[in-house]
Design a protein around this nucleic acid. Structure first.
Lengths: 195, 195
DNA sequence: TATAATTTGTGATATAGATCAATTTTTGAC
DNA sequence: GTCAAAAATTGATCTATATCACAAATTATA
């Protein structure tokens, strides 16, 4: 496990054994049951989570009681309510578990401490954040410029695994369309393939 | 001008005079004419820009020739094609000037150099990037959960200046709706206010 | 393994917002 | 100040996708 996490970090920044031990000492390992909530709307957001195993979702419940999916997180992904985490505000979204998961937990203060003591880790998080920015910008663009079928196909080709692991109504919610529309798209896809 | 930029940096990270001079030495000042393009689709993206004065837009032209606005940048904002800038890829979007502008230009290599030599600046860019992430996540959420009127009102209350400086069809494009719909919304607003 | 709960599929209908087309207003260039 | 270009408005349609209602299938649980 330690090794898997090290690989994740070293994809971006190479570390000596001592450096990695220093980094790793800031994390706590945690098991989270299916359906369990690790971030609750209105509560403080102490931590950011790295998913070692399992699947989580970040979601927002709007005034009409409709759920919107901001983000999924599978193995190797980070998840939290960034807005709240960074600004020490109360959560505006929920983060919960879709499959029983194992995560590494990092608190805000430990993260800041790590970044101020380690140039490399400051860079690691900067680069991660930059990448996340690029991805979010792309998502905005997709929401602005693509119709439901295009959005579905994009997700299908970029994260086919996700479509298998996540209930379809949550996928629909992530793509910004109704479950009925998504259902019709996936049926259409199956027929398209047969012909 | 130098002072205005220093204030911008020091909102996030305080610097000594020497530190600031070191930082500032990496930037070049540049004047950009209205309608001029500083990033062109298909071309390399060398720089990130900080707007000292003026107004710029980042936009994407889709396959049907429809323009989508990814970002505006007024005074004090940063702008570039992040995806391309970070990954040294060719631009997928255009960045151009809506008003004659003055910007500070920072190249990728100077930015990396600065970050590796200055812990503080690495932190500055990390924090900026985090904030941008939170904002983008909020925009995604708005696109997922709000109708045209709600999106218009949100922009109106958060960036009233923008509505005055930018042609409405570009605002429409930023919000993901047609110029006709936006026009009807603003008319409605005016009537709503009168009553 | 039975029963409940969750998820998915499908037809009928409604609607927000797009598109089309024409006009008016504003802005910019000479 | 005049003329051309760009932007905004307005009405009449059209359409993609939401919503509603119910049925079928799958998955979890007692």
């Amino acid at each position: 496990m330690k090794n898997k996490f090290r690989q994740h970090i070293e994809k971006t920044t190479s570390l000596t054994d001592e450096e990695f031990d220093f980094v790793f000492s800031h994390f706590k390992r945690k098991q989270i049951d299916k359906k369990q909530c690790i971030i609750k709307k209105g509560k403080p957001v102490e931590n950011v989570y790295w998913v070692l195993k399992g699947l989580m979702k970040a979601s927002y419940l709007d005034l009409n009681g409709k759920q919107h999916i901001i983000q999924f997180a599978m193995e190797d992904w980070w998840i939290t309510d960034y807005q709240a985490f960074i600004n020490k505000e109360k959560a505006t979204i929920d983060v919960s578990c879709l499959e029983t998961s194992e995560v590494l937990v990092l608190s805000f203060s430990d993260r800041e401490k790590m970044c101020s003591e380690s140039q490399k880790m400051a860079n690691f998080f900067r680069i991660k954040s930059n990448a996340s920015n690029a991805a979010l910008q792309k998502r905005v663009l997709t929401l602005l410029s693509s119709n439901s079928e295009e959005r579905y196909n994009e997700l299908l080709s970029e994260h086919p695994k996700l479509l298998q692991r996540v209930p379809k109504h949550l996928i629909a919610s992530y793509l910004g369309l109704s479950r009925e529309t998504l259902s019709r798209l996936s049926v259409k896809k199956r027929i398209d393939v047969k012909i």
